[in-house]
Design a protein around this nucleic acid. Structure first.
Lengths: 76, 76
DNA sequence: AGAATTAGTGCACTTTAATGCACTTTTTAT
DNA sequence: ATAAAAAGTGCATTAAAGTGCACTAATTCT
């Protein structure tokens, strides 16, 4: 099943972005999961793009990474 | 339980934004739910902020509304 | 090299999102 | 005013997310 809508990151891309950022900040999955309040198992799945994560999971993690999610107009 | 992380829209705010946009486009919940491929019951909950929706649910809906989600740096 | 740390995976269980249905309330149109 | 359409709500069921545990694979040390 595919979840990625046009113009929006797929869960795989989101996971990759999260992993890249985490490595940049030089923290482990374990640290990020604990600080964010998400299980290690879930974070692993999220980074691997093997999940269809909930809003809460996503926001918890990206917040730790110094990111936020913004709604933006798609210009055609 | 609260899901809203700092700097990111809470589910309530997200729901309100979706509803506002839907009304602007002058379509019903039923239409939006069918076009987006999400159940009417779920869309109602989403607009009311009574949900912790999944990535797929959110992207399906905002796509129809001509929106996308973007990761943005939080500057402190 | 070996040891220690970190990351990835399979599976079972628990929790909860997603849905359908029946119904009420509110809004809009005639 | 009343009929029709749209939106809101409660509840039970189903599907799937979230988790813990035990383990293996890969990295990163000394």
């Amino acid at each position: 099943m595919r979840f990625n809508a046009p113009h929006t990151k797929s869960v795989a891309e989101l996971g990759q972005a999260i992993k890249k950022r985490r490595l940049l900040l030089d923290i482990t999955q374990e640290d990020l999961s604990q600080i964010g309040g998400v299980s290690l198992r879930s974070l692993k799945a999220l980074e691997k793009g093997e999940a269809n994560p909930t809003w809460s999971q996503i926001t918890k993690i990206i917040q730790v990474l110094g990111w936020k999610l913004e709604l933006k107009e798609v210009q055609q």
